[in-house]
C-alpha cells in the first residue's frame, strides 16, 4: 500500500460529505524569518462549504468555528488566527475562548496594512498622488474597511464610503465628518464610483459590480469571493490587483505539500495578511490577542504589523490578479 502522505488530498471525492467533516488540521507549515528564527504552524480547516455560508446555517457554522478553536486547544497550540470568514462568523468576538489560555487574532491588522501599503505603492508607481486622490472603500463598515479608512483619513483628498447597511454607514461617516475629514457615503455604489481615483474592495460579496469609472483607476481587491474582475467595467487603464497579501522572502513549506492544490498563486511564497499576522506574532512571542472585535484596528497597529513584517523579511506581494503578475511588478516577482 502506498502511504497516504505521498498523495495529494482527494478533496473532490468528499464533496458530497464535505461539510459533515469535523474541523481538523490539514497540513503543517514551516516558516523562516529573515532574522533566522523559525516557527511551525498547522492549518486547520473548519469544513464549512462555501455554499453553506448563509443565514440558514449560521448557528451550525459558528459551532464549527468554535469546534475548530477547540481542536487548537486540544492540540495544545497556544496561538491561532481565525482566518477568512471564520472571524466574520464570530464578528471577531473571542469571549468563548477565554478559558483556553490561547492567543487569538483575526489577522485583520496586517491584512489592512498590506491593503493600504499596496494601494500607496500602486499609486506611487502610477504617478498618482494620494493626497489628491479620492479613495472609495467598498465594505467601509467592516473591520478591514474601517481600519483602512481610519488609516487613510487625513492622507487623501476625499473618502468615499460604501456599505449596504445605511445606519452603520451613517454612524461611521458622520464620525469622520465630525473629525473634519472630507467624506461622502452611500449604499449606492454608482453614486461614488465615478469620483474614485483609488478603490479598496473589502466586502464579502459576490454582488458588487463597478461601472462609470474614471480612466486609470487603481483597484485593490482584498475581499472574497474573488470575482470583482468579472464585474468591473472593462475600461482601459484600470489597474486591478488582489491585495492583502504578503510575500515571505525566506519561503515556507507545507507538510504534506498541498501547495499545488490549496495555495496556488502566480508568484512564490505568497500568503494572506491574516495568516502572516500570526506568524509574526509567533516570531515576536506576542502573548496577547492582537486584532479582535470590529473597528478596533488603529493606524498604530497597522504600522506596527507592517514594520514587523519587513523586519522578518515578509514584503508586500507583487501586484497580480487572475491573469497573473501585473506588468509593473514583473521585475520583483521572484524571490
Amino acid at each position: 500500500m502506498r502511504t497516504s502522505e505521498l498523495e495529494e488530498l482527494p478533496i473532490s471525492k468528499i464533496k458530497a460529505i464535505y461539510d459533515y467533516i469535523p474541523p481538523r488540521g490539514i497540513f503543517k507549515m514551516h516558516v523562516k524569518s529573515l532574522t533566522g528564527i523559525e516557527t511551525n504552524g498547522l492549518y486547520i480547516d473548519t469544513f464549512i462549504a462555501p455554499d453553506k455560508l448563509n443565514a440558514q446555517n449560521l448557528r451550525a457554522n459558528i459551532q464549527k468555528v468554535k469546534d475548530a478553536v477547540k481542536v487548537v486547544h486540544h492540540l495544545n497550540i497556544k496561538m491561532a488566527i481565525l482566518g477568512g470568514f471564520t472571524s466574520l462568523l464570530l464578528e471577531g468576538n473571542f469571549n468563548d475562548f477565554e478559558d483556553y489560555d490561547m492567543v487569538l487574532t483575526t489577522g485583520n491588522s496586517l491584512t489592512s496594512a498590506y491593503v493600504v501599503k499596496g494601494l500607496e505603492k500602486a499609486a506611487r508607481e502610477h504617478g498618482i498622488s494620494m493626497s489628491e486622490s479620492n479613495v472609495l472603500v467598498i465594505g467601509a463598515t467592516g473591520d478591514i474597511g474601517m481600519a483602512c479608512t481610519n488609516y487613510l483619513k487625513g492622507k487623501v483628498n476625499r473618502l468615499l464610503l460604501c456599505a449596504r447597511n445605511m445606519n452603520r454607514l451613517k454612524t461611521f461617516g458622520q464620525r469622520l465628518l465630525d473629525e473634519g475629514h472630507e467624506v461622502k457615503y452611500s449604499s449606492d455604489l454608482s453614486e461614488l464610483a465615478p469620483e474614485a481615483d483609488l478603490i479598496i474592495s473589502v466586502a464579502s460579496s459576490s454582488e458588487i459590480a463597478i461601472s462609470s469609472l474614471k480612466p486609470k483607476v487603481i483597484i485593490c481587491d482584498a475581499g472574497y469571493p474573488k470575482n470583482l474582475e468579472e464585474k468591473v467595467e472593462k475600461v482601459p487603464g484600470v489597474f486591478l490587483f488582489h491585495g492583502g497579501m504578503g510575500q515571505l522572502k525566506h519561503g515556507y513549506s507545507f507538510n504534506p505539500d498541498y501547495t499545488s492544490q490549496f495555495y496556488r498563486y502566480p508568484a512564490p511564497h505568497l500568503g494572506h495578511g491574516c495568516i502572516i499576522e500570526i506568524i509574526l506574532m509567533a516570531f515576536e512571542g506576542i502573548k496577547e490577542n492582537f486584532s479582535m472585535g470590529k473597528g478596533n484596528i488603529t493606524s498604530e497597529k497597522i504600522d506596527l504589523m507592517y514594520e514587523l513584517s519587513l523586519k522578518h523579511g515578509i514584503e508586500l506581494a507583487p501586484f497580480y490578479n487572475s491573469d497573473g503578475i501585473l506588468e509593473a511588478s514583473k521585475n520583483n516577482s521572484t524571490t
Partner: peptide, 12 residues
C-alpha cells in the same frame, strides 16, 4: 492526527 484521518477518509 486530523491531517492523517482526513486523507484516509478522502481516499475511501
Amino acid at each position: 492526527p486530523g491531517e492523517k484521518s482526513i486523507v484516509w477518509i478522502a481516499k475511501l
